[in-house]
Design a protein around this nucleic acid. Structure first.
Length: 259
DNA sequence: ATGGTAGAGGGTCTA
């Protein structure tokens, strides 16, 4: 089973590239972030023509998440559920569904903008809600994958220049602690579990030629519970998808599991 | 010195 995540930075602008990539990479499940569209504009037919069922959660031109699957989509749920106070209640940043007997969660964690800021504070609260959702809905022996754009570089290997980022969002200790809390619960960073090196990024700013200069960050993660991690055989960032005409600023992250 | 690019929409806002 192949699971992938990709922040596409507008599905409208990226649809052709996503279609091409699906045919090339053949993931069983693809989680999308930053679709930047309302549900009524989601191109479900284009994906169904390629053999994918899909669900989307989006209100407007901001954020928006989706799950595409060739192995079924059961019990889709938007957000954290009823009765949970969401610090980004007006945004669509989390969508979960069961695909091929794994509970898949597509997340687009708030960016946080500046440190300090009200947005940064609410990013940390959003992370708390995610950890609470996980604990309330699952036990570590469940097959669960939380994947998407976490807007956190888990450690200094995950940024091109730790010095350039001191004090900035994505690298602060509270943000990293929020990711560690998920790992302490029992989730494994499936890409990092296979590769120790630095320079293995999933996002590069559009500006200053950052991609071609190798100035990136690894902020797109695939976190799997132990039953999933035990099945993990391979992981990669498809950097080719960041090249060429009108790329997203993120590349897809792909993991393979034994069936 | 707060630059630069891309995508939303049709102002600037978000990243």
């Amino acid at each position: 089973m192949r699971i992938a995540t990709w922040n596409v930075n507008s599905l409208k602008a990226r649809l052709e590239r996503v279609e091409e990539w699906l045919e090339y990479a053949q993931p069983d499940v693809l989680c999308l972030q930053e679709t930047k569209m309302a549900d009524k504009n989601f191109p479900a037919m284009a994906f169904s023509a390629l053999g994918y069922e899909s669900v989307h959660h989006g209100y407007n031109q901001w954020n928006g998440v989706a799950i595409l699957s060739k192995v079924g989509i059961e019990d889709p749920q938007n957000g954290f559920g009823d009765g949970v106070e969401n610090p980004y209640a007006d945004d669509a940043r989390m969508l979960s569904a069961t695909c091929g007997r794994i509970r898949i969660v597509s997340v687009y964690v708030p960016n946080g903008r500046e440190v300090p800021s009200e947005f940064y504070d609410r990013k940390l609260v959003w992370f708390e809600r995610l950890a609470e959702w996980l604990d309330a809905n699952h036990i570590p022996s469940d097959p669960v994958v939380i994947t998407g754009d976490f807007n956190v570089a888990p450690d200094d290997r995950d940024v091109w220049s730790p010095k350039a980022f001191v004090g900035s969002t994505h690298v602060t200790e509270p943000e990293r602690a929020a990711v560690r809390r998920l790992e302490d619960w029992g989730l494994v960073d499936l890409f990092r579990a296979r590769y120790n090196g630095d320079g293995l990024y999933s996002y590069w700013d559009y500006r200053r030629g950052d991609f071609h200069q190798g100035r990136g960050m690894r902020i797109d993660l695939v976190l799997g519970s132990q039953p999933v991690a035990e099945r993990s055989t391979w992981a990669i960032v498809d950097r080719n998808a960041r090249k060429g005409k009108q790329p997203s600023d993120h590349a897809p992250v792909v993991v393979d599991l034994t069936d």
